[in-house]
């Protein structure tokens, strides 16, 4: 669930190879053998299965080439599924980005005591990992039909939440639940960017006569923008792949793409493996696009933060 985005230190990558010395066996020719177990594992258990799905997506059950499976992704219920997934991921990522950014701003730049920041950061590390089934249970106890908040709203404020059209087991309920791991994730990945806003920039702007608003408009916001957009995409991908939380909340009635694929694999729906492959390929394609864009934006942001 978490994305470890703190920049890996590139130190230790030594440019010049050490000279061979007496007593040390000659180096070179067979060194690559050391990477074989890892590469074999990756090929057999990551690349091969994915390639299998990708190839299968372009084949008929009999093995002939076809674009039919991909075309079938446009069929009404599958397209609706993708559209639902995309909307849910967009909504969840958008809310997560905005709230996470606000929270990160408050603790990093808001002038609060240091312990608030360490408490929030520590909690975020836990909450961004607290996903899946238990998270769903906690929200059912909160906003389910007899959840604590639902009951308090009804008894104390005379608001019948479920009569307003809200349901924990629908679109906005899911988005609200996702927020529990999205907001902390946003906080964790955007914090380095906020820290990268140098105090000297604000001071330089002030000494040049700019107001705080002008500083944010001309410098702060533009410098943050690539990072924020990148994190938004990361959150989008994170929401798009979420499956266990949805199942625990809705029992596979809410047909986002992962659920559809889950049911395909289970054989609960009309079973056509090649269409299943196409579904999987569609998911991978979306993940690749969002993650690549994320990396590009992050590289760009880092260039500025030197």
């Amino acid at each position: 669930m978490t994305a470890m985005t703190e920049a890996g230190t590139a130190a230790g990558l030594r440019e010049s190879a050490p000279q061979p010395r007496a007593g040390v066996p000659a180096r070179g020719r067979w060194d690559w053998l050391g990477a074989v177990p890892f590469l074999a594992f990756v090929i057999i258990f990551m690349l091969a299965p994915v390639s299998y799905l990708i190839i299968g997506a372009f084949q008929t059950p009999k093995g002939a080439f076809t674009l039919g499976n991909i075309a079938d992704l446009a069929s009404p219920n599958i397209a609706a599924s993708y559209w639902l997934s995309i909307r849910l991921s967009l909504a969840s990522a958008l809310i997560g980005t905005v709230t996470g950014l606000m929270l990160a701003w408050a603790v990093v730049l808001g002038g609060l005591p240091g312990w608030v920041r360490s408490a929030v950061t520590t909690f975020s590390g836990v909450a961004s990992n607290f996903a899946g089934v238990p998270l769903a249970f906690a929200f059912i106890a909160t906003l389910g039909r007899i959840g604590l908040v639902t009951v308090i709203l009804r008894k104390v404020f005379h608001i019948n939440l479920y009569a307003t059209g809200f349901s924990l087991f629908s679109f906005w309920g899911l988005a609200l639940t996702y927020l529990y791991f999205q907001m902390p994730l946003m906080l964790l990945v955007i914090t380095p960017a906020l820290e990268g806003l140098k105090r000297e920039w604000e001071e330089a702007a002030a000494s040049l006569g700019a107001s705080r608003l002008q500083y944010w408009r001309f410098v702060g916001a533009p410098v943050l923008a690539p990072s924020v957009l990148g994190c938004f995409l990361l959150l989008f991908a994170n929401a798009f792949g979420t499956l266990a939380t949805v199942i625990a909340l809705t029992g596979s009635n809410f047909s986002v793409v992962p659920i559809l694929l889950f049911q395909q694999i289970r054989g609960n729906v009309l079973y056509n493996p090649n269409l299943g492959y196409a579904l999987a390929v569609g998911m991978i394609a979306i993940m690749i696009v969002t993650n690549t864009a994320y990396l590009v934006l992050r590289t760009r942001a880092e260039r500025w933060q030197k």
Binding site: R14, W32, F38, P258, G276
Partner: peptide, 28 residues
């Protein structure tokens, strides 16, 4: 021994982040 291979290995190790678990297990 293989510093030139490091970017490749690092990239491969990050691949699972873009393969949703449901897709991975489907392939398996």
């Amino acid at each position: 021994k293989l510093p030139k291979l490091r970017p490749v290995v690092e990239f491969l190790s990050l691949l699972p982040l873009i393969i949703p678990p449901v897709v991975l297990v489907f392939g398996h």
